[in-house]
């Protein structure tokens, strides 16, 4: 089972905290929205969870997919 990160573009206000917490997973695009650039794995799962919890705009979600 793998975890997928999603950024809700409508909620993302470009605070960029996720790119500080998990620079391998998020990047700011040129419109100031966070985009997902990496895959969640065992090594970065904690960072991913932290980014979800820390987003000031509550714009990041993590869902399980596959098995």
């Amino acid at each position: 089972m793998s975890q997928q990160l999603h950024v809700d573009e409508n909620k993302c206000a470009g605070h960029a905290l996720c790119t500080v917490i998990a620079p391998d997973l998020f990047e700011m695009d040129d419109r100031g929205k966070a985009i997902v650039i990496g895959q969640v794995d065992d090594a970065n799962l904690a960072e991913a969870e932290e980014a979800v919890a820390e987003c000031p705009a509550l714009a990041i979600a993590m869902t399980s997919s596959g098995s």
Binding site: G14, H15, A16, T19, V20, P23, M28, D29, D30, K33
Partner: peptide
């Protein structure tokens, strides 16, 4: 320049 925000925060 939102792409600079993370570096500036650091």
């Amino acid at each position: 320049r939102p792409q600079d925000l993370a570096r500036m925060r650091r």
